[in-house]
Design a binder for these strands. Sequence first.
DNA 1: CTCAATGCAAAATGTTTGCATAATG
DNA 2: CATTATGCAAACATTTTGCATTGAG
Lengths: 153, 153
Amino acid sequence: MADNHDHAHSHRHNHLVEDMLATMSRNGWRITEQRKTLAKIFAEQDGYLSPKDVYDQMSAEYPSVSFDTVYRNLRMLSEMGVLEQFYFMEGGLKFKGSCLSHHHHHLICVNCEKTMTFDYCPMEQSLELPGNYKILNHRFEIYGVCDQCQNQS
Amino acid sequence: MADNHDHAHSHRHNHLVEDMLATMSRNGWRITEQRKTLAKIFAEQDGYLSPKDVYDQMSAEYPSVSFDTVYRNLRMLSEMGVLEQFYFMEGGLKFKGSCLSHHHHHLICVNCEKTMTFDYCPMEQSLELPGNYKILNHRFEIYGVCDQCQNQS
DNA sequence: CTCAATGCAAAATGTTTGCATAATG
DNA sequence: CATTATGCAAACATTTTGCATTGAG
């Protein structure tokens, strides 16, 4: 099972990694070993990762990596739009690879943080809003417990 | 204008202050001068306040107040449900008095953080969601620039 | 070979904790 | 008067910065 699962994924992963690296390159950033590793980590991961998580995974491949480099790169990648950042109330700031292709919202597992996307957007309704705000953006997330996490405890 | 505006508000404010103090009392917390001030600050304020904002306003009345007391009380009031906390991406953790009476969502001014509520809730739609998540809660916020802030620059 | 990226150390920020003192109920 | 809340100081966690060195283009 693990085998063709992983195999099916690896194509998508390589594609994502290349996308991320291409975006960095396009924005004038150099492709370093650490940034390749960073891209790979987020391509292989559906959920959110804290800077600490990323650091831990990075140091597995590059034992000498430093925390500030991780932070710097996470920040840059967020600014470029390659990563989405999100602040969990408990658990602080986390990052995940962002889908750049289309507007969508997230269904997030509060246990493992695995995230699924869905296309329904409440802003497509004709909302009656109070005040005369000039609307800039919005945020809609649904939290729950995913199938796996429901069955495993 | 300021006069009957303020006057109309003051009734609501007193009511809110009493509500908050009653909730603290009900939960077995003592009503201290600082907590009264804290309740008043949030009753008089529509928008979000950072711990620093709260500290500054508190020290206007109690110059000797300390930061950790502010934090402690903010945390307690949040746990009790008297305050809602919210993490602004830029600007960190902030608090506002919470409306305990009915479910609603927020329209938030990104400039002054003045917040209006509205009753439309996307969860009332029959959403088709991926996965088999057991849904726990959700979050829907709209960000914009309020009337005042649009006209003042 | 030039300039950007890294690692290191140290600082800045934001939040929490332990404990003696003060104040509430 | 018993017990909780406060202020102080110090600890802690997280994120940012300055600078010499390394490495990508």
